[in-house]
Nucleic acid binder design. Structure first.
Lengths: 227, 227
DNA sequence: CTCATGGTTCGACGCTAACCGAAGCATTAC
DNA sequence: GTAATGCTTCGGTTAGCGTCGAACCATGAG
């Protein structure tokens, strides 16, 4: 017996065809629900549930509960790295691109999620705030940094009024089109409200789309640009 | 159902404990016979024969017949790379097969990763070469800069002979203990070979450890010191 | 409240694959 | 030649795991 980490445990997890299909699907970087992964793997939801439990316990997947949905994503870059290396070895057929299923371009760009901004512009705002360290995520919860407080105040939001509310200020929310995080919570709602207040955008009556004016688009891009 | 490279086939091969032990043993870079690998895995020779057949048919092992012996070795750098990456994941989960001991310390400092230098000294060599811009990473691939060419030549390596080989010259390999990059590819192999040639170090018979002499250690530190 | 939906647990079935004993080749040693 | 060593093939046993149907729990909608 040689020394070294136990490879077989992890590898046997990836070694099942159904689980491999799930992991491959998650390589696109977007979180998927248990049902979607079941369909992806061609098994029933019961079977998928068993597989997903093993993958999560094995440390390959990260789980985020949201309502009655469970969103799974790869646990980290190192997992993706292993999968990529395995695909290189298995270089039989060329790999396949994913179809995101675009319904409405405007909806994917910007839309309302309950009461906050979602879609591409929502995730970009979130990413920008994370990159500038306006938000930090020490544990499971999001908190606003001092720099973030300044940023939000300068945008014209009354933070004290929000803090008085007992609803959580910052919450992370997963996108159905982008499958990436954006900002929810009372701050997320306030941000969208302020965007409408400034005349940057208005909500469509029929759909959940958020329609930006040219001027609003410029303002938004300026807002999320690095300092 | 998503088509793609069949990572489950390869991964299920690695996923068996006996086969994983064999592959781990072969990470030392030495070719081993079927009987030795059987002992390594703790199974009878019949069972090992079956496993080795599968591994060879699966493209993970290369076979060299010599008399009545069969020498097995890893099929290539890409296989070693996958195994190393898997060890990184497994070590992360804290499922080490053997508890850390004195032998383990030597392994962390310097060991063989298939045919090149890994461990602390491997990553330090890599870092030093990156810092002096001997290696550049424009896209995904590593390339040797003119300064790097000079450095390697002065160390006594015949670069032209390496370039004649169609195997990639520089490759990045991720360490399971350091979780940082070190140099693989034909250049990585040549560097380790030169280190042994100079009498700076020798490989341990039993483990993957690379044991440096005091003189070799001095030479190595001088080599990676900034100009 | 009731209904619908997403996900889990349980039990049973069936298939696969790892394992070893014994016998069979093949090659080298004497 | 015979003996010994290295490895493979064959049969048969066993254990594990993937799979699905059915029932169950939890959340959200109306």
């Amino acid at each position: 017996m040689r020394e070294g980490p136990d490879i077989s445990r992890i590898s046997s997890l990836i070694g099942d065809p159904a689980r491999a299909s799930m992991l491959t699907a998650l390589m696109a970087g977007k979180a998927l629900t248990a049902s979607e992964l079941a369909r992806e793997a061609g098994v029933t939801v019961q079977t998928a549930s068993s597989h997903l439990g093993k993958l999560e316990r094995g440390g390959l997947l990260r789980l985020r509960k949201q309502g009655r949905h469970k969103y799974f994503s790869l646990a980290g870059d190192d997992v993706a790295h292993v999968l990529e290396a395995l695909m290189g070895l298995a270089a039989d057929a060329g790999h396949l691109r994913t179809r995101p299923g675009p319904k409405n371009a405007a909806l994917r760009e910007a839309r309302v999620c309950y009461n906050h901004l979602a879609g591409d512009m929502g995730t970009r705002l979130f990413d920008s705030m994370m990159a500038r360290q306006f938000l930090s995520q020490p544990g499971d919860d999001l908190t606003l940094s001092p720099g973030g407080v300044r940023f939000v105040r300068e945008f014209g939001i009354d933070l004290d009024a929000l803090a008085a509310n007992r609803a959580p200020l910052c919450r992370e929310c997963l996108d159905w089109s982008e499958r990436r995080s954006h900002l929810a919570g009372s701050l997320g709602r306030a941000l969208l409200h302020r965007i409408e207040e400034l005349g940057w955008a208005r909500r469509d009556r029929e759909t959940r789309a958020v329609l930006f004016t040219p001027r609003g688009r410029n303002g938004f891009e300026e807002l999320i640009a690095a300092p």
